[in-house]
Nucleic acid binder design. Structure first.
Lengths: 151, 151
DNA sequence: TGCAAATGGTTTCAGATGAAACTATAACGT
DNA sequence: ACGTTATAGTTTCATCTGAAACCATTTGCA
């Protein structure tokens, strides 16, 4: 008789991470989509530009962990919607200089507090200890991944 | 002068979860794809069937947090590859009865230990305390999400 | 200086994915 | 028994996404 390995999917860390993350992201995505016609990728670009206005698409990609194709597309749509403006860098004509328009800032100022509220609501399920540990653990895994990819 | 909200994307929990989860999943996906011609969705189906052989597609969907369309497609491909067999339930002819073939078991027995190894490698970045807290935190958030969706 | 390689960014193509429509069967209420 | 409603599963269509090809510009170096 053959005995097989036993793997309980529900207990499997990558699976749990994935399901949790997707559930959270999708809930947020649906709201942004319906209220602001804004996809998650677009929102990430906005969020980064709200913090670092005037950077190039390349830097947006780095700071959002998105690839350059995704950034290119998100920016194209954001420009079409008049939320982002694209210029060309003086010192390097390949590079773009991305800035938020008035309209872009307006959305940003609406969505940012909403995002923080989502985060608070999620964290509210955890007590103070758990929140601290989670933050620390994510930071560690994050660093580990960065290292991994750096090779 | 207008002061805008400040939202540091890198510190934003849903974002961190998403990036971490995607990085982990993609690393695993690439390996399964190249070594076994197996997508993550297909792997999840295999994993559940390895544990609960003979269940219906509907139950696979529940246990994998995938929607029924995704399950249907994964099963179709797994059948084409001769890894899964589909029968019809006696008591309800709508329901399928999904079982692993010899070939399916063979893959399962290869992939399962590999999956566990991936998990170990990820957890190795954390000390024992952190591992315990992570498990507990994910469990709590998981329950919270379930509740959320149940409404 | 001039040419090969690298970089920033966009486009194209092919496969993945989700929502809604659809088919078949079963359950429910009268 | 019979029509309505619900459920299991598949198919279709439109959108999303990633990989690779591509263009323009810059960098590195002989």
């Amino acid at each position: 008789m053959t005995v097989h390995h036993v793997l309980e999917l529900e207990q499997f860390l990558p699976y749990r991470l994935s399901v949790l993350s997707n559930t959270v992201s999708q809930a947020i995505a649906r709201e942004y989509e319906s209220r602001f016609a804004l996809s998650i990728t677009q929102w990430r670009v906005l969020a980064v530009l709200g913090r670092y206005d005037g950077i190039a698409a390349r830097e947006v990609a780095q700071r959002t962990a998105m690839d350059k194709v995704a950034v290119s597309r998100a920016v194209a749509q954001l420009m079409k919607d008049g939320r982002v403006r694209r210029g060309t860098a003086e010192h390097d004509k390949r590079q773009s200089v991305l800035t938020l328009t008035e309209k872009g800032w307006k959305i940003y100022d609406e969505v940012a507090p909403l995002a923080l509220e989502h985060e608070r609501r999620l964290l509210a399920y955890l007590d103070a200890d758990e929140q601290r540990w989670l933050s620390r653990i994510l930071e560690k895994l994050w660093q580990a991944e960065l290292q991994e990819l750096g090779r």
